[in-house]
């Protein structure tokens, strides 16, 4: 860790944060927010949190930015300045921010120094995970083993959160089917104006590699940074790329709305189902070690490893499908006619 670099990135982050909330153009704000996320990603790599950085790169900088851009594109770029009338709200905001800030500052004095190897956080639970991950689960990536096994229950609900979000967006935005058909018949090719052969060609060539890489990230998550989330988001991003470079009809032709939601559903179901199978086999919920009874040629430790791969696959399916669904609905305001 190089603290000068650290400090530099942190100050850039603060600058970006200030810029993104103060620019008057929402599109710029979205882009600056993307930059902010990338800087975050750098910061975390620099602090050794590679998995977090990977996720932030794909989810925060990637999907979030796309969603922001899509939303801004669908609404308006302009922010009206009404500074004069809103003293009261600004006062409340300042008061809340300073009071929360003050309370937080009061706590910092008691914290152990930054990156102190003797801090409670580094000495209480984490040594167990670090020293036992191989003996318990045979997974060298400690983050993966903690994520998918020691705290697999968290992760299951995290997947459920994503699924719920996808469903929520559909519930809020999606319009009735008849309306959709009606409108899409009128406007057949909506992204005509954006047609660009080079982009389309490059995008088309990139998609298979992206998907391959996504599968690699997923499969190799046990040994290197990555896993279900990152893989799933990249997989989803490849579909979004199609939608952006071509149009939404092409995407929906390959992956209909119904399949989209069903896949998201199946992904979570794979996760919860594996947990439930453990329960049916007589162990506790999500206790993969029992799976050695039904998996050929595995002992209890490898069963955990395989179980994790199984649920990571579920996560990847769910996340990729839901990311696409989020994009499709937000970019088209729920009408499924055109994208960006």
């Amino acid at each position: 860790m190089i603290w000068q670099l650290d400090l530099l990135i942190l100050s850039l982050i603060v600058l970006c944060a200030l810029a993104t909330i103060s620019v008057k153009d929402l599109f710029s704000a979205a882009i600056i927010f993307g930059a902010y996320s990338f800087l975050m990603c750098l910061l975390w790599t620099e602090m050794g949190a590679v998995d977090v950085a990977f996720t932030e790169a794909s989810v925060g900088a990637g999907v979030s930015t796309v969603l922001f851009v899509a939303a801004v594109f669908r609404t308006t770029r302009k922010v009206k300045d009404r500074g004069v009338k809103r003293y009261w709200t600004k006062g409340v905001g300042l008061l809340a921010a300073t009071s929360v800030g003050g309370v937080l500052i009061a706590a910092v004095g008691d914290f152990p120094g930054f990156a102190d190897p003797l801090s409670p956080a580094s000495t209480h639970l984490s040594p167990y995970f670090i020293t036992n991950t191989l003996t318990d689960t045979a997974v060298p990536n400690i983050v993966t083993s903690v994520l998918a096994d020691y705290r697999g229950y968290d992760t299951m609900f995290e997947t459920a959160v994503i699924f719920a979000a996808g469903l929520a967006v559909i519930a809020i935005l999606r319009r009735s089917k008849t309306g959709v058909q009606h409108e899409s018949r009128e406007k057949v090719i909506l992204s005509e104006g954006y047609e660009d052969t080079i982009i389309r060609l490059v995008a088309r060539k990139m998609v298979p590699f992206m998907q391959l890489f996504a599968l690699y990230v997923l499969a190799h998550g046990h040994h290197s940074p990555g896993g279900g989330f990152q893989g799933g988001v990249i997989l989803g991003a490849s579909f979004i790329l199609i939608a952006i470079s071509y149009d939404m009809k092409m995407l929906l032709g390959r992956m209909s709305e119904k399949w989209n939601v069903l896949l998201g559903n199946i992904g979570v179901l794979v996760y919860a189902g594996i947990g439930f199978v453990c329960l049916l086999l007589g162990a506790n919920f999500l206790d993969y070690s029992i799976l050695h009874r039904i998996l050929p040629a595995t002992d209890e430790i490898m069963a955990r490893s395989h179980g994790m791969l199984g649920i990571e696959t579920g996560v990847a399916i769910a996340v990729s499908a839901i990311v696409v669904s989020l994009y499709v609905n937000i970019a088209s305001q729920g009408k499924h006619d055109k994208g960006l």
């Binding site: 602090m47 050794g48 998995d51 801090s119 670090i130 940074p225």
Partner: peptide
């Protein structure tokens, strides 16, 4: 993430 940083430690993947 700042809590998780540890001086002189490598990324949490066992070599």
């Amino acid at each position: 993430v700042s809590i998780g940083a540890k001086r002189g430690a490598s990324i949490p993947i066992i070599a």
